[in-house]
Design a protein around this nucleic acid. Structure first.
Length: 929
RNA sequence: GGGCGCAUAGCUCAGCUGGUUAGAGUGCUGCCCUCACAUGGCAGAGGUCAUAGGUUCAAAUCCUAUUGCGCCCACCA
């Protein structure tokens, strides 16, 4: 019995071990990266989780993948930096705090901006590090001392700089447009923030009467045939009848013969009484509805377009909360959906509602609160994206940035090539205020207002509007009039307007001139860091973030750094439940990763997630048992080795000449595993890497090698190999399962590293390459498997030892002879004797293995000979069938001529073997009496 | 209306650039608590690789079409 420095318990206890190592890692400065010109840099910036975030499975997957990359590159000798941080998540965080104060019966309106923001900051201080702590628990080796927050002072400077410089280049403008408006959050949203979902709605057909009904005599011949053109009015179809209160025209397609004669005529808008004209516009689809469309320029993007073209009146009928305003007349004060009901009722009463059809259509929803968004006319700030998109398109087309899996390239390009201007102003409080100041005096003169216009307006096309000041620092006075009454814009910026700067703003960009020496030095340092670590290496994220974040970071990279922000984009799958639904809090179908960590361990969580991450992941709790079981297997194999190998045994000096065949085999397998695992991670095939390790460790190492090693466990060489293979396996496993591997390594000792996180990544060793050993071991495995199989067939009790005879061609004889004890042990044979020539012993059962190695099981007392003859006949018939098929293949001229030589050669060899084997079987069968 | 992805063992999924007898985990059946591990070991059953064509000496793998499911994008109100 060796004296153990530390005992390993019979069952792995992840909780204890993981908590210990999480603590240790936190105290080690090892994950801090700094400029090191001697090393290649490897940089990942974390997709910053929301400060409101609680670790969910998507995070767990996303961050495990990043951690694997970072850990492996670190071990490979890169200066590996994983930049952590959180996102202030404007709308989401504001909503959380609003809900919190609502419990105290307060609204943010009552509190006022300043008080409310204090409350949000307070919340951030209390809960903002929740997810960071959870990431640590997952094992993430971020450079924690660099942790950034998108509302940090320095980071905010980047946002101001970007806003102002884009404004100066005329790439940011203010204007009145139809945007997506969330009536619940009461803010504008970008197109990406208002995803469309199909809803079962209704299509209402409403009759708008003509002011002067057409005289019967004016009817053209054509019109008389068309039933759709009633001469006392026009029927329009709409899904949102309440918007009719803001109608200022009805449009038809100019080519539509049904309505041609009515173009220019006047209609009386029902319920309102306003006179509106009939206009012609190509935007109108003749085949939809009645071919006539009501035009509400202030409440629909298409109608807005027509409103501009035809210089219609823009009537906004809603308040920001989607309650109808004074322009809605009798319906003022009603909610939009209430008003819809009322209007339908009133129209029905007036016999103007022609019909209602069921209609399934896509409706925009707020991505934060899922409220149906309202297309809403308002004054907002926009980024002119087309010029920014150009280099971002080129970079991907030229392969400077590569998406994996590749198919996402197309998704990205398609979006980028059809990019729309980006609405960046939000009517919330939590976020970066726009660096825009309004001179109250100038504003009063020009009559400009930053409020939503009620009706007619003209677009402000130039960025040089009087009284609007966009500046890096708050100006003292108005440059136009010298007035000092300046008011900063109330709006804040889209959260993504800060996230898109993440790959470089996290390094302290932009670097301002500093006065103090200390600050100067720090700034110089940061500049060097940015230069060294940027562009980052890989971005790991989920598909739904491509437009929000990935695409915009690429634009920002070119716009402000003049280069790509990252070389590779790895897009992983979505985590779903067993039914295939996306895991989400609202569905209540999510599996809490923290619970999994609690019951199975972080390593188990990581392993199970990664082994399933080839595509979208369908998770159930059982999936994590596989990870737990594997961890336990690693633990126990280590325990066995620890208990049996002498202290101080080290595999670094293993001499292949002193090795048995099985030793050479496992070492060759290990080499192969090192190569394949490394290659798989390089190609972002994480599931392949982890499954290779699983198979190697469990099946090759534990099931075969360790079992064989038990026989020679007292030999130092065996111990050395066990320790060596285990140690290398732990290193390979470390990026995937960091806790258990570090724990076992530390217990095994003999390492000069506090944590193997900084140990070198294993390399295949030339001296362990051995093709022959692997071939011979295949024979031994076959022998064992066949013997076991026959034992089962013969229903032999495990205690019954069988007698075996073996023959091998001279070339292989020595090696197999040496392996005989192993075969005996694994196959529970009591004796294995060697035959000098290859003739079957009397009454033996053939267990043919290969052409140059035969195995016979002595049957006496074990089996009915007649039965065995019959069984052999079946096997022989099978053999003939296979021979026939192979012969046919080799007779095929096309195959012989066109297939690669090796393939043909392999087939020839296989045919020979089959023939020999079958002939032998026949002989053996004849010999059986 | 465009675009993409997926259909392989009862279930969940691997299978990279075509090449022996298509794999794993889980479940099921049988036998084992063999001194690292029952969160374990050994063995077994289970697949016309969605369908129909095509290319090829050779197709789960490449091409075309069809069916079913899922996702994304889009200004038919």
């Amino acid at each position: 019995m060796n004296d153990l420095p530390r005992e390993l318990s019979a069952q792995y206890n992840p909780k204890e071990v993981e908590e210990k190592w999480a603590g240790l890692w936190a105290r080690m400065p090892l994950f801090h990266a700094s400029v090191n010109p001697d090393k290649e840099h490897f940089t990942i910036v974390i997709p910053p989780p929301n400060v409101t975030g609680i670790l969910h499975m998507g995070h767990a997957l996303n961050n495990t993948l990043q951690d694997i990359l970072i850990r492996m590159r670190r071990m490979q000798g890169c200066e590996a930096l994983w930049m952590p941080g959180t996102d202030h998540a404007g709308i989401a965080t504001q909503n959380v705090v609003e809900r919190q104060i609502a419990k105290e019966g307060l609204t943010r309106g009552q509190m006022g901006r300043e008080k409310f923001l204090e409350k949000v900051w307070e919340w951030k201080e209390n809960y903002g590090s929740t997810i960071i702590n959870q990431l640590k628990r997952l094992g993430a080796t971020c450079d924690w001392q660099r942790e950034r927050f998108t509302m940090d002072e320095g980071y905010s400077r980047a946002i101001t700089e970007v806003f102002v410089s884009l404004y100066e280049k005329d790439l940011i403008y203010q204007g009145d447009y139809i945007i997506n408006w969330c009536p619940r959050c009461q803010t504008a949203l970008s197109d990406e923030e208002a995803p469309h979902h199909d809803l079962d709605g209704k299509l209402y057909y409403i009759k708008y009467p003509l002011k002067e009904p057409q005289a019967a005599g004016r009817k053209s011949k054509r019109n008389s045939k068309k039933t759709a053109a009633p001469e006392d009015g026009i029927i329009v179809a709409t899904t949102r009848p309440e918007t009719m209160l803001g109608d200022t025209a009805v449009a038809v397609n100019p080519k539509d013969k049904r309505y041609k004669h009515l173009i220019g005529a006047t209609l009386v808008l029902p319920l309102v009484g306003r006179e509106i004209g009939i206009i012609a516009d190509d935007l109108v689809d003749k085949s939809f509805g009645t071919g006539a469309v009501k035009v509400t320029p202030a409440h629909d993007p298409n109608d807005y377009q027509m409103g501009k073209t035809h210089e219609l009146e823009f009537i906004n009928i809603m308040q920001p909360d989607a309650v109808l305003n004074a322009h809605a007349g009798d319906y003022a004060g009603m909610d939009r959906f209430e008003a819809r009901e009322a209007i339908i009722e009133d129209l029905t009463e007036r016999k103007l509602l022609v019909k209602i059809e069921p209609h399934r259509h896509a409706v925009g929803h707020c991505y934060r609160c899922h409220t149906i968004v309202e297309p809403y006319l308002s004054k907002q700030w926009f980024v002119r994206t087309k010029p920014l998109a150009k280099p971002a398109i080129d970079a991907v087309k030229k392969g400077k940035i590569a998406f994996t899996p590749q198919r996402w390239t197309k998704v990205y390009l398609n979006w980028m090539e059809n990019i729309k201007d980006w609405c960046i102003s939000r009517q919330i409080w939590w976020g970066h205020r726009l660096p825009v100041y309004y001179c109250q005096r100038c504003m009063a003169e020009t009559g400009s207002k930053s409020q939503v216009p009620i009706s007619n307006f003209k677009k402000n096309s130039k960025n040089t509007q009087k009284g609007i000041i966009v500046a890096r620092v708050r100006p003292e006075k108005c440059p136009d009039c010298g007035g000092t009454d300046l008011k900063q814009d109330e709006d804040v910026l889209d959260t993504w307007f800060s996230s898109w700067l993440w790959p470089f703003a996290t390094f302290g960009w932009p670097f301002s001139d500093q006065v103090s020496e200390d600050a100067k030095r720090r700034t110089e340092e940061q500049k060097k860091e940015l230069e060294y670590f940027y562009p980052t290496s890989v971005l790991v994220t989920a598909p739904e973030i491509i437009f929000f974040w990935v695409a915009r970071m690429i634009m920002a990279g070119f716009a402000f750094m003049g280069s790509i922000p990252f070389k590779d984009v790895f897009i992983h799958g979505t985590v779903r439940d067993a039914q295939g639904r996306k895991m989400s809090k609202s569905l209540g179908n999510s599996i809490d990763p923290l619970e999994v960590i609690e019951t199975y361990g972080a390593d188990a969580l990581r392993f199970s997630l990664i082994s399933a991450c080839a595509s979208d992941i369908f998770l159930s709790k059982e999936k994590f048992e596989q990870g737990r079981n594997f961890a336990n297997k690693i633990w126990n194999a280590s325990r066995f080795i620890r208990m049996n190998a002498a202290v101080g045994v080290d595999g670094s000096r293993i001499d292949p000449a002193a090795c048995r065949i099985q030793d050479l085999w496992i070492l060759a397998e290990l080499n192969d595993t090192i190569r394949r695992v490394t290659k798989a991670v390089d190609a972002f095939r994480f599931h392949e890497a982890v499954n290779l390790l699983y198979t190697f460790f469990w099946h090759s190492f534990c099931d075969w090698y360790v079992e064989m090693a038990k026989q020679t466990i007292c030999e130092k060489n065996t111990q050395e190999i066990l320790v060596h293979v285990l140690k290398v396996s732990l290193l390979l496993l470390h990026p995937f399962m960091p806790f258990i591997t570090d724990e076992i390594s530390s217990v095994l000792g003999g390492s000069s590293f506090e944590t193997i996180a900084v140990a070198p990544w294993p390399q295949p060793e030339k001296k362990f390459e051995n093709k022959e050993a692997r071939e011979l071991m295949r024979i031994i495995f076959d022998a064992v498997l066949l013997l076991r199989e026959r034992r089962h067939e013969l229903k032999l009790n495990p205690a019954v030892k069988v007698r075996v005879r073996m023959w091998a061609a001279p070339k292989k004889r020595a090696a197999l002879l040496a392996a005989a004890p192993v075969i005996c042990q694994l196959a529970q044979a009591s004796e294995l004797e060697w035959l000098d020539d290859d003739t079957a012993p009397q009454n033996s059962l053939s267990l043919l293995v290969a052409r140059d190695a035969h195995l016979y099981l002595l049957l006496e007392g074990l089996v009915d000979i007649a039965q065995e003859r019959e069984r052999l006949a079946g096997e022989i018939a099978q053999g003939h069938k296979q021979i026939k098929a192979k012969e046919a293949l080799l007779k095929n001229k096309g195959f012989v001529k066109k297939a690669p030589e090796q393939v043909v050669a392999a087939e020839r060899k296989r045919l020979e073997e089959l023939k020999a084997k079958t002939a032998d079987l026949e002989e053996i069968r004849r010999a059986l009496q």
